[in-house]
Computed example of a mutant assay.
Amino acid sequence: MIKPKRVFDSLNDRAEHDLVGVIRMPESSVSPVASILRRVLWALLALFIAVMIVYLDRDGYRDVNEDGISFLDAIYYATVSLSTTGYGDITPASDSARLINILVITPLRILFLIILVGTTLAVLTERSRQAFKIQRWRSKVRDHVVVVGYGTKGRSAVSAVLSDGVEPSRIVVVDTDQAMLDAASMLGLVTVHGSGTRSDVLRVAGVPRAKSVVVASSRDDSAVLITLTARELAPNAQIVAAVRETENVHLLRQSGANQVVVSSETAGRLLGMATHTPSVVGMVEDLITPDEGLAISEREVEDSEVGGSPRHLTDIVLGLVRAGTLHRVDSAEADAIEAGDRLLYIRKVTPADD
């Protein structure tokens, strides 16, 4: 029985060179002016080397005027030779001059042309270079963070993750809006163009090997589907999802989300609190803004802290995490710190932390 030829309808089955344009690796940003200036300087350097070679060996060249080769003649010959114009009025006559033309001037001519058409060559080689970087990244990426959706919520989530010291190259953004992906790429993030509701797109983003997945979709129904798909691919990953309406929280939890944030309800509470306790709102904003002031953070307990009370530490402790469960600092379970606990505390953000 002849088996039908397999159709590559899954992004994850594609070779790396077919993923160029889907996955985009971060690039070092160089302004167009600086790039052009650099190319011009390299071209001038190649021209200068050719001029000096011709001038130092000027006795081996013949001019139709038969008045010898001056420095200006050397510049003229090097220019027309490297640009492949070649009028033939100045030619290498001696064996040494011809040998130098073969071994030195010709490679310089090729280098000169490569520099002049470097922009075109860069476009042609970009695909291969991106394919190599994608292959290397996919083979090594582990325990990274995948953010699905790069709208307001997604950008804020990325900012918080970066403030915790995570390298930009270890954050993958998935979105269908190329403008959003371009903005993420400028921050040094890896981007994947596609819908987070598709399992093949999430596989390309490395969700099966991810440590955390942030679902920041603008629609609650999409968030449920993304969470379901991500949980199927990554049973042990930490999945955090945002929804607009409280009534959809149970759907996200049933889909496999570890934490669900209700964006509309949270914003509404802050708005209500701001009408009579604006200072409280300011403090909350300070705690959830990682750039300055105070921030909520998490750390491992030290050996000297085991057995003591979290309320007696110099840090302001809000709670502790034991076996994956959060206990508030006023609960009975948090009376004594145990080995392996993690403390949720308030830290002061200094300029060195940014």
Rank of each mutant, 00 (worst) to 15 (best):
Ile2Trp: 08
Lys3Pro: 09
Pro4His: 13
Pro4Ile: 11
Arg6Leu: 13
Val7Phe: 10
Val7Ser: 07
Asp9Phe: 14
Leu11Val: 00
Leu11Ala: 07
Asp13Gly: 00
Arg14Asn: 01
Asp18Ala: 13
Asp18Phe: 06
Val20Leu: 03
Pro26Ser: 08
Glu27His: 12
Val30Gly: 04
Ser35His: 08
Ser35Ala: 14
Ser35Arg: 15
Arg38Met: 11
Arg38His: 12
Arg39Gln: 14
Trp42Ser: 10
Trp42Pro: 00
Ile49Lys: 03
Met52Cys: 10
Met52Ala: 09
Ile53Cys: 10
Tyr55Met: 01
Tyr55Trp: 15
Arg62Asn: 08
Val64Asn: 06
Glu66Ile: 01
Asp67Leu: 10
Gly68Trp: 02
Ile69Cys: 11
Ile69Leu: 15
Leu72Thr: 14
Tyr77Gly: 00
Thr79Glu: 01
Leu82Ala: 08
Leu82Phe: 04
Gly88Asp: 07
Ile90Ser: 03
Pro92Arg: 10
Pro92Cys: 08
Leu99Asp: 09
Leu99His: 06
Asn101Val: 04
Leu103Met: 10
Ile105Cys: 06
Thr106Ala: 15
Pro107Glu: 06
Leu108Trp: 05
Leu113Phe: 13
Gly118Lys: 07
Gly118Gln: 08
Leu121Glu: 06
Val123Pro: 00
Val123Ile: 13
Glu126Lys: 11
Ala131Ile: 05
Ile134Val: 07
Lys140Ala: 11
Val146Cys: 04
Gly149Phe: 03
Thr152Lys: 15
Ser156Ile: 02
Ser159Cys: 07
Ser159Trp: 06
Val161Met: 05
Asp164Cys: 07
Ser169Ile: 09
Arg170Asn: 14
Ile171Arg: 01
Ala183His: 09
Ser185Lys: 04
Met186Tyr: 06
Thr197Asn: 04
Val201His: 01
Arg203Asn: 07
Gly206Val: 02
Val207His: 04
Ala210Gly: 05
Ser212Gln: 13
Asp221Glu: 15
Ile226Glu: 03
Thr229Pro: 01
Thr229Ala: 05
Arg231Ile: 09
Arg231His: 08
Ala234Gln: 02
Ala237Asp: 06
Gln238Val: 02
Arg244Tyr: 12
Arg244Trp: 07
Thr246Met: 13
Thr246Asn: 09
Thr246Pro: 09
Asn248Ala: 01
His250Phe: 10
His250Tyr: 09
Arg253Glu: 15
Gln254Val: 06
Ala257Met: 08
Ala257Phe: 09
Asn258Trp: 05
Asn258Ser: 15
Val262Gly: 04
Glu265Cys: 02
Thr266Val: 09
Ala267Pro: 00
His276Cys: 00
His276Phe: 15
Thr277Arg: 15
Val281Thr: 11
Met283Asn: 05
Glu285Ala: 14
Leu287Gln: 05
Asp291Asn: 11
Gly293Lys: 08
Ile296Ala: 10
Glu298Gly: 01
Glu298Leu: 12
Arg299Glu: 02
Arg299Trp: 00
Glu300Ala: 13
Glu300Trp: 00
Ser304Asp: 13
Val306Met: 02
Ser309Arg: 07
Arg311Ile: 01
Leu313His: 04
Thr314Tyr: 03
Ile316Ser: 12
Ala323Thr: 07
Gly324Gln: 06
Gly324Phe: 03
Leu326Tyr: 15
His327Pro: 00
Ala334Lys: 02
Arg342His: 13
Leu343Gly: 05
Leu344Ser: 02
Ile346Lys: 09
Val349Trp: 07
Pro351Ile: 02
Pro351Tyr: 02
Asp354Leu: 13
